[in-house]
Design a protein around this nucleic acid. Structure first.
Lengths: 126, 126
DNA sequence: CTGTATCCGAATTGATACTG
DNA sequence: CAGTATCAATTCGGATACAG
């Protein structure tokens, strides 16, 4: 395992492992949703992102944003005001990732009914 | 939240929720790796997939394949032989998803060094 | 070979309370 | 406002044993 066949111009297993690891860190639910929120609305502050991602807890939002910052997907800007204002913005890297994920979104949107039907059929069979 | 701006031809929040939920189920680590293994090598039996995804336990492989079958991503064919042979194959839906994820793989491959650098810089700063 | 069932520790997550 | 700290609950995942 390691890469789609049409993807690989190299075949260093260590690079494959890194790629898999990176995807593992980046492809979790909350990261995807935050990425989407930022892609959609541009630079935004902490609470606005929280509102844009219903269901996320404050803890998960903080944790996800820190992780994204660490991966280089977002920048974090603290404005020295009272009350504090912290703004998050996608980096070019983050924006590129959002675009890459677009394909997955399209897939989900296009196939939502097929998937629901498959699920219903499977459940009926069991 | 709900969709990238360039994606949405509708804006039914219930559809958005469904899409997000679907992505949540489909974007987990093992599903991605199994998807990749099947995309790369075509129809394969249980144990071959296990070998193609190093690190996965039998339990997780079974569980992941069941879930993928439920979502309509793979078909499961049992051959009435002794010993039993069970083959898994991507559906069109599954294949399309694999293609959609290709973009993410490309992104990770292209940017692996940028990401590593970002991480190192972040860690040095803390 | 391809599973299912069970146990158990580890890791995630949510809720709540508190702080600069 | 934008977090941090903590605890409880759930979930995840590996190991093992067993079955068709």
């Amino acid at each position: 395992m390691g890469k789609p066949p049409h993807t690989s111009y190299h075949s260093d297993p260590r690079v494959d492992a890194l790629v898999d690891e990176t995807i593992g860190r980046v492809a979790d639910k909350w990261t995807l949703l935050v990425l989407e929120a930022l892609e959609e609305a541009g630079e935004q502050r902490f609470s606005a992102i929280g509102r844009a991602v219903p269901g996320i807890s404050q803890k998960m939002l903080t944790q996800t944003l820190r992780q994204m910052e660490r991966e280089g997907l977002v920048t974090r800007t603290v404005h020295a005001e009272v009350p504090p204002r912290v703004e998050y913005r996608l980096t070019v890297l983050g924006h590129d990732l959002a675009e890459a994920f677009c394909g997955v979104w399209h897939w989900a949107e296009r196939n939502i009914e097929t998937i629901e039907a498959a699920r219903a059929a499977f459940d009926a069979r069991q």
